[in-house]
Design a protein around this nucleic acid. Sequence first.
DNA 1: CTGAAAGCGCTAACAC
DNA 2: GTGTTAGCGCTTTCAG
Lengths: 340, 340
Amino acid sequence: MKAQATLKDIARETGVHVSTVSRALDPNFRHLLTSEVVGRVTAAADALDYRPNRIALGLRTKRSMTVGIIIPDIANSMFPPIVRGIECVLEPLGYASIIVNTDNAPERENRLVDVLSERGVDGIVHAASLRSDEKLSRIESSGVPVVALNRSTGISSIPEIVHDESYGIELAMRHLHDFGHRRIAFISGPPTLSTGLTRLESFKLNCDRLRIPAESPMIIIAERFDESEGKRCAEELCRSGHPFSAVLCANDLLALGAIGALKKHGLHCPDDVSVTGFNDMPALEFASPRLTTIRVRKFEAGRRAAEILASRMEDPKKPVPDRTVLPIKLIVRSSVSRAR
Amino acid sequence: MKAQATLKDIARETGVHVSTVSRALDPNFRHLLTSEVVGRVTAAADALDYRPNRIALGLRTKRSMTVGIIIPDIANSMFPPIVRGIECVLEPLGYASIIVNTDNAPERENRLVDVLSERGVDGIVHAASLRSDEKLSRIESSGVPVVALNRSTGISSIPEIVHDESYGIELAMRHLHDFGHRRIAFISGPPTLSTGLTRLESFKLNCDRLRIPAESPMIIIAERFDESEGKRCAEELCRSGHPFSAVLCANDLLALGAIGALKKHGLHCPDDVSVTGFNDMPALEFASPRLTTIRVRKFEAGRRAAEILASRMEDPKKPVPDRTVLPIKLIVRSSVSRAR
DNA sequence: CTGAAAGCGCTAACAC
DNA sequence: GTGTTAGCGCTTTCAG
């Protein structure tokens, strides 16, 4: 139960002043000391197993060397790769990260921004923004840089990293079209999320382009991006009685849920109906049927977001790209077959 | 870019002393102030959008209200539920957590313990301990409580939460035995990990009990708990030429890898060979064949670990259980069929 | 080259 | 009831 050694302890031990110890231990100031003193100090520091106290340092320097990562839910397999992408650039720079889960609840999101702010984070990667958040713009204008990932905040001063969502939907549709599908249903995510909206808009646009009718019952809006909603929407689709040979889903979870529900209605994927997803989440690796989907670069998105954040934290004046669009990729597996 | 308001600002605004402001804002001391002052102070605090600075608070009180969570890899779907379990008890108590990934590298584990220690965490949940770690016992004896999860540290003063691993293996074996399997191979995890060792020992013990021969080529040792090792071990097993009708795997990833490799050798699961896993990791939800496995209570383990940690952080004198063994459960799905 | 002193924002004795 | 003071561990002027 012996307390951590402090600069003071080393100072006492070596008979020099604490500020001298501080300098001796700082590579940037070490040079203006006699090497004899530096030697004695570093030796004592080692002996006492000295660890700098980052709390005190943070109080003094106004930099906690901590960043906040806001995500909906770490248990959603989309997010761990993003987190690791972020950390792979921030950890070497000496930052630690505090990850908070909003569970997509606006009131939690709000509270968590406060939590991070109280803890004096030097920056925030926000991958769960629901909409333009007043609190967020306040923290941002108080000098804590924020970068948005995946979802748009609607706040112009916040740089965002997004995937080429529209093009992803386009690729999926063209793939279905190439396989002869003309009656394509769409299970959309909630249009309240920027990803939900973008994918929906892109679906409609591409219906026009491909001269596919996008009349009402063929577009079903999910309330959440999850399996149970995929199931519900697929059932609604079946009940509508409208004919369809393919279902394009706004994300993988919706697709998996839909595939299950369709099967209950005697529609097997891919034999009776083709289904596509979006995201290529890691959990898909083991899923069956092997889902044809659009791969978004999760790790890379995290990496890029962190790079931009690091740049802002380092030098707020240095310009960074407002908006980074990451390329997506169609991953052809076996949930799509030729239309009959 | 206006700085955060401090107690000093509120003091200036309201014309009282900072310590009065501090008291007015602290529910525990509010009562010894006139309600008039309390009112004025809280009003001013609201107006200035005051947020307590936890860094300063931490420096003063020696409590950062931060905990460290050490895991091998957040991208492994075993860990997010554990993390959420931990946070579901610690977050309401006001703690934030710093999650670090060791990638099972001893040198990283070592460094990360330092990182957490520098940041003055009030406690650590260690779910990635490789062995008795000198650094860990030092931080522990410096007054920072540690609790081990899943793996044993070998340090007696560190409480541990483990699953009833031996019994899990027993259940899996009995299940296989009940289905008529007598030639059961075992793909073991690395015996350097406590889980690897425990499961291996239990397999041997239950071979004796069930009078199943456990001779050498039927036990294959994986170097890591991952899919590629599962594949490699299954291939080795096939090459050995020894007959077997079932493969019991020390975890789900090994099982999934093994199933894939067996298929390449013309052995289909469950028709030609039965396979069981261990853990019931979330990613299994979508996997096919639906793997029969042993479910460990990941969220609950996190919860219990956090409760014990919270108790230690709150009052180090209050006794806590040295060792908590969580019950496991056999989850019967469809990767096991009757032996032919 | 090194020491002295101030102060980051906050709490906790101790006065009054 | 409220103000004063000191100090947590550190960096950073400013002296010398």
